[in-house]
Design a protein around this nucleic acid. Structure first.
Lengths: 123, 123
DNA sequence: TAGAAACCTGACATTGACGTCAGAGGTAGC
DNA sequence: GCTACCTCTGACGTCAATGTCAGGTTTCTA
């Protein structure tokens, strides 16, 4: 498939896909005229990249770990990197859970106060 | 306390604290000569701001919700905003948990393959 | 009462993951 | 073959949360 189709299938912009290739996170075959062509597995690859981005992992780090994630094989060095990111992801989750509790306590109080007719003070 | 002390207490840079004030997220009293002075509660405030930042909430959104978070009182409109962010935080947590599973499965496979002596292929 | 250290404002620089635009060539349906 | 749409490269723009530097004032310490 060409880049537009991959973009719509993954929900990622064409620009972003070119950027991924620029960062060597995504590979394409080129037609004679230079147009990018992708196999079906590119969809999974792009979604994987998105997932890692969402975990706050930089493109450089993704580049480092990607072949290992794909093949399931890693050197001890990359293994350490992966474990580092694992801890970081866990910490992010914990932080977000804290934030969630914070928001919930605010919401609980706010709903009550709203019921009692007290408005929100301006900033 | 002055800005430097607040910075060391919170682990946030002086520059960042000035930025928070610029964004009206943080208030200071000024001495005659113009230096910022903070009360003890500023520490909690800064940590709260950091927590909201970590949840991916923008400074504008924080500004909107901050008085309500602090006072525990919110208008219906702000309430809706808060609920929106709550959903977003939950989704972030779920996404990160997905990523964690992904990383774990990679780690499991990688450790095994490492035991079997297969190296990580280069990018 | 020096001199160092902390603070001030203002402004430009940075980083990462894209958005957007220009100008040109490729592709597909009729 | 026309037309509309897709794609290409290259380059500059963006946005948010800072970093950093300059040039000057204030505060602390010896």
């Amino acid at each position: 498939m060409r880049i537009g189709e991959l973009a719509t299938k993954t929900g990622v912009s064409v620009r972003a896909l070119r950027y991924y290739e620029e960062q060597q996170l995504l590979v394409s075959e080129r037609s004679e005229s230079g147009q990018r062509h992708y196999g079906e597995n590119a969809v999974d690859r792009v979604q994987l990249i998105q997932q890692l981005y969402a975990a706050g992992i930089s493109s450089a780090a993704i580049l480092e770990m990607l072949p290992c994630v794909v093949t399931g094989v890693a050197s001890p060095q990359v293994l350490a990197t992966l474990r580092g990111h694992r801890s970081s992801v866990i910490k992010q989750i914990e932080d977000l859970q804290d934030t969630l509790r914070q928001l919930d306590s605010v919401l609980a109080g706010a709903v009550k106060s709203h019921e009692s007719g007290v408005p929100c003070p301006p900033a």
